[in-house]
């Protein structure tokens, strides 16, 4: 089955996030997509979509949302360490270690807080914020299970 234009968009997202390619490196991206098996028509549609997305605001942010999440050690961006409270950072780390949050969910939480300065957040706000984002992540209906996991694995956080 030929790869779709949406797969091409996701591949472009990987090239930007993983390999650090810039939007201006369109020629390099096109060659990479062709060598990955994408057809010319799909590549054209993908770049058209990105042009439209660029007008919606921050195309980089949109592409980061699409990029596949790498497993393994995550290196924090300096801006994240500056604006994310230690309290929140520690709780996310503990939740990941205890497998309450997988990598994808942790990235969604961090996406959510990138635009916020959480340095002066209190415990209850940290707790509520993570609950809010986990509710979004589990809208398939398993929110009660998410709460139970949190209570079991992080009782001091979800008393």
């Amino acid at each position: 089955m030929p790869k779709s234009w949406w797969d091409a968009v996701r591949e472009i997202a990987s090239l930007v996030v993983r390999d650090g390619l810039h939007q201006a490196d369109e020629g390099v991206m096109r060659r990479a997509l062709l060598s990955s098996g994408f057809e010319e028509e799909a590549i054209i549609k993908a770049f058209d979509w990105i042009d439209h997305a660029e007008r919606s605001g921050n195309v980089l942010e949109a592409l980061v949302m699409l990029a596949p999440r790498p497993e393994g050690i995550r290196v924090a961006h300096p801006m994240e360490r500056m604006f994310v409270s230690d309290r929140l950072w520690n709780e996310i780390g503990r939740a990941r270690q205890r497998e309450v949050m997988n990598t994808d969910l942790a990235e969604r939480v961090l996406e959510g807080i990138r635009a916020l300065d959480t340095r002066d957040w209190e415990d209850n706000e940290v707790r509520s914020f993570i609950a809010d984002l986990m509710a979004d992540a589990t809208v398939s209906g398993d929110a009660s299970r998410a709460e139970q996991i949190l209570k079991d694995q992080l009782p001091e956080f979800y008393s």
């Binding site: 707790r127 509520s128 986990m134 509710a135 809208v139 929110a143 709460e147 949190l150």
Partner: peptide, 9 residues
Amino acid sequence: AGCRPHDFL
């Protein structure tokens, strides 16, 4: 009462 995940839903 504080917020829990299912409270938002």
